[in-house]
């Protein structure tokens, strides 16, 4: 277990280092930041001085090391547009994204598990076939298009829910949150549904497949033979066994949900980190783009690592497999 853990942590670190190298080299390849920072009427001497000041005349590997060194201290440069540290900017916007991603994950469980359970328990019924077909659609529909349909239906046609912004927020633990006010929830409902679409489909499929797999097993038949009520069998014996893969997949999906929030945030003008990165790409605000990519990749790798470890702890079978 310890050997596996060390190997897994090393692997995670390697991904982060590789990503930082790609980001650094990429940024280096697309041009000299001095050209952006200098005034158009600057002389050649000014330029040379700035380049020396920024350390751009040093060998590339030295530049990378100093970049990595300050990155480890949480310094990824200042935003050209907002003139504040890029990391600060990302961290300010991250809670809005996290809130949305977690709400979307919660929705996927609330809607996905019951629907998947139904489709798994009664596979022959018409409603089950409808659910299964719907989940296939949920996989293949482009998220942004569904978001537009949601706005068209619920904001424009019926006028029930707002189409943009976060609404009222409450300041708590150093960040603003929408989920604590009714108005905030009204704003969050559509984006969260939009972001959860893919995951609802995923949960439906996983739950359905899990139920189909577990139902014919001996322990379920034994429970039935003991005369337990059907509801109890489903809750205690079937659902509990499906929970492990479900929690694992949802945990792993959280990272990509945060990344894919870019699309949803852009449609619903949700002021999270995804909206920020799009604005920054368009404004050529490189430090923010770099900071976003590194922060999100790190977040992603850490989440995956934690889920992986939890999975081993929760499921003894995997543990044995690894030590064998």
């Amino acid at each position: 277990m310890l050997g596996w853990l060390l190997q897994r942590v090393a692997q995670a670190l390697l991904v982060i280092v590789a990503m930082s190298l790609v980001v650094f080299l990429g940024m280096h390849a697309i041009g000299n930041p001095a050209d952006i920072l200098l005034a158009p009427d600057a002389t050649q001497a000014d330029r040379a001085e700035l380049i020396a000041q920024l350390g751009l005349d040093r060998p590339l590997w030295q530049q990378y090391l100093s970049f990595a060194g300050s990155a480890l201290q949480g310094d990824l440069g200042r935003s050209f547009v907002y003139n504040v540290p890029a990391v600060t900017l990302i961290l300010q916007r991250l809670p809005a994204t996290l809130e949305l991603a977690i709400a979307a994950t919660a929705f996927s469980v609330i809607f996905g598990v019951p629907l998947g359970l139904y489709a798994g328990l009664y596979p022959e019924r018409r409603l089950s076939k409808l659910i299964t077909t719907g989940s296939i659609l949920g996989f293949s529909l482009p998220t942004f298009w569904v978001g537009l349909l949601l706005i068209m239906t619920f904001s424009v046609y019926f006028g029930w829910l707002p189409a943009s912004g976060r609404g009222e927020t409450v300041h708590l633990l150093g960040a603003d949150w929408s989920f604590l006010t009714l108005n905030g929830w009204r704003h969050m409902l559509l984006p969260a549904i939009n972001l959860s679409l893919f995951k609802v489909s995923l949960v439906i499929r996983l739950t359905r497949a899990g139920v189909r797999e577990v139902l014919p097993l001996d322990y379920v038949r034994f429970a039935r033979a003991k005369g337990l009520r059907r509801g109890r069998i489903v809750m205690m014996h079937v659902l509990r066994n499906i929970m492990i893969p479900l929690v694992t997949v949802l945990g792993l999906e959280l990272g990509s949900t945060i990344a894919f929030a870019v699309v949803t945030e852009s449609i619903f003008a949700w002021p999270g980190s995804g909206k920020l990165i799009l604005d920054s790409i368009n404004a050529l605000d490189r430090p923010v783009v770099m900071a976003y990519l590194l922060v999100v990749v790190t977040l992603f790798v850490v989440i995956n690592l934690v889920v992986d470890i939890l999975y081993r702890i929760l499921d003894p079978r995997v543990r044995e497999e690894a030590s064998a």
Binding site: G26, V262, I277, V296, V297, F300
Partner: peptide, 11 residues
């Protein structure tokens, strides 16, 4: 395959 596609695309 492990990185979210949108992240790679943004980069």
């Amino acid at each position: 395959m492990s990185l979210p596609s949108i992240l790679v695309a943004l980069l």
